[in-house]
Amino acid sequence: MSKTTVKQKKEGLFSRKYLRYLLDPINDINPITVQVLGICSALAVTVKLEPAVVMAIAVTAVTAFSNLTISLLRNTIPHRIRMIVQLVVISSLVILVDQILKAFAYDVSKQLSVFVGLIITNCIIMGRLEAFAMGNKPWPSLLDGIGNGLGYGAVLIIVAFLRELFGSGTVFDIPVIPQALYELGYVNNGLMLLPPAALITVGVIIWIHRWLNPKLIDVS
């Protein structure tokens, strides 16, 4: 008994163990391509890069702070009503994000329309609260929240970049495809701007991701 209670060496805030919480969600347990969480918004806001970047930041902020809050409250929340408590925390944070966006980035907030509100039901947040924050200390929870937000944001930005590049020939609204190419007969692919293209892009990203990282392949 006494052996197990030996005082552990104090860990630094960014020790290897903690860093894993931050970095794992970006590759091995990426929320979108592996955990299949938060797909809805990932697909809907990726027609252009700008809303995608804003969305990624918003979701990262909400996951990080809701993870932190729930982790601080985890010992006081009665098990049966935990869902309601989680939803109240998340929606208060989302109201904050929404008001900030409306105040400082009104155009983007109009483009995102209902999808800012839908951050509340973004499964990444609930999923991480249930799976991680309810059973871990505040600091790892905060890191896990940031990590998952970044993993989500990474996929979002890749998809948005590809869709904007091939769909409208621009990156951040700056034309990048040279005029000469258009004169040769190159045409923007209008399908990339339509909803199904987002699904195909994510499907292909998952394909490549699993091909590079074979331990993720579905056995079934």
Partner: peptide, 20 residues
């Protein structure tokens, strides 16, 4: 199906085709 595409990847592409 090609191994890395099995499961989730293909599910997305099926949804895209249904969407089209």
């Amino acid at each position: 199906v090609v191994k890395p595409l099995r499961g989730l990847g293909l599910a997305f592409i099926i949804t895209a085709l249904l969407g089209i």
